[in-house]
Each structure stands twice: as structure tokens, then as C-alpha cells.
């Protein structure tokens, strides 16, 4: 349970960054940290102590228990989606920089006509 709480503390760090920072790049970094903590949480839920990696060696029914492959498959797709959304956010940030000349959210709000 302590590890779950620590993982959630990483998530809270990301939320703090999103709520308090004014720089767009810092907001993107905070969102990435939140995604990281989610991946780690899912991988931790599927872990079994003393388990093996979910790759069998010839035999169909393994002797030692394998860790749950379902959360790992979900995390595998989520990582690639996170890369795509990150690229999208950076694209929007760089377009805003071209238009307003700053990454500051407050100045963008003031300059908005």
C-alpha cells in the first residue's frame, strides 16, 4: 500500500504543476509526469511477488506464476498514445509562441483580441 501512495504522490506533483505553473512547456511536462505515474500504477497492480515475466519458454502451462499480462498490454498502448498527445500539445504550444511571442498564459490571455 505504501508504494501505491507514493505513486499517487507522483501524480499529485503533476497536478500541482498543472494548477500553479504559467509556462506552457511546464504544463506539458506536468501532464507527462501524471501519465508516468498512471503507467506505474497499472504495472504495479498486475505484479505478483515471485512471478516471472509473461513470456513462456516452450511449455504451455508455466511452472512458476507469471505476472498479469492484461495491465501490461493496456500500458503498452497507453505509452504510444501519450507520445502522440504530447506531440500534439507541443505543436499547439509552438503555434501559440509563433503568434504571441511568449509561453506565458497570462500574457496570452491579455493579448487575446
Amino acid at each position: 500500500m505504501t508504494l501505491f501512495i507514493m505513486c499517487f504522490l507522483l501524480f499529485l506533483t503533476g497536478i500541482y504543476g498543472v494548477l500553479t505553473r504559467r509556462n506552457l512547456i511546464k504544463v506539458v511536462i506536468s501532464l507527462t509526469i501524471m501519465e508516468f505515474s498512471l503507467f506505474l500504477m497499472l504495472a504495479m497492480i498486475g505484479y505478483i511477488s515471485g512471478g516471472e515475466a509473461p513470456i513462456l519458454a516452450g511449455t504451455i502451462i508455466p511452472a512458476a506464476p507469471v505476472v498479469d499480462p492484461l495491465p501490461q498490454a493496456m500500458v503498452l498502448t497507453a505509452i504510444v498514445i501519450a507520445l502522440a498527445t504530447n506531440a500534439m500539445l507541443l505543436t499547439i504550444a509552438i503555434r501559440l509562441y509563433k503568434k504571441y511571442g511568449t509561453f506565458d498564459i497570462r500574457e496570452i490571455n491579455e493579448l487575446k483580441g
Binding site: 504495479m44 505484479y47 501490461q72
Partner: peptide, 8 residues
């Protein structure tokens, strides 16, 4: 790697 997940 510690959680036995080499794929991800």
C-alpha cells in the same frame, strides 16, 4: 524492469 515487464 523490476516489475517483470520487459515489453513496456
Amino acid at each position: 524492469l523490476l516489475l517483470r515487464a520487459p515489453d513496456i
